[in-house]
């Protein structure tokens, strides 16, 4: 598999680490235990197009949000995480 890193260009799979579903958002500090439980443990297991977190540890150390079809491994988009590269969001 090849991933086009927005900072480094097209690189080989071995440079990246997979984390998982990028959809769950970390609940706010005052969220209930149930909400945090869902965030930590509940994941969709999608056969098809999925948004995922990948880490370019063998390159620029950016976290990436990748849209991938889990059936074909086709990657449609690669976006940097909100805080990747830039020092601060909205700075």
């Amino acid at each position: 598999m090849r991933i086009v890193c927005p900072f480094c260009g097209e690189r080989e799979l071995g440079e990246f680490t997979y984390l998982g579903d990028a959809k769950p958002q970390r609940p706010a500090a005052d969220a209930s235990e149930d909400a945090v439980y869902d965030y930590v443990y509940l994941r969709d297991n999608i056969a098809g197009v999925m948004s995922e977190h990948w880490y370019h540890g063998g390159g620029c150390r950016s976290w990436l949000k990748i849209t991938r079809n889990t059936l074909t491994h086709e990657i449609s988009t690669v976006e940097p995480a909100a805080g990747a590269g830039a020092a601060k969001v909205g700075a």
Partner: peptide, 9 residues
């Protein structure tokens, strides 16, 4: 980068 992108660090 993902959880706390608003922090300048």
């Amino acid at each position: 980068q993902v959880l706390f992108p608003e922090l300048d660090v």
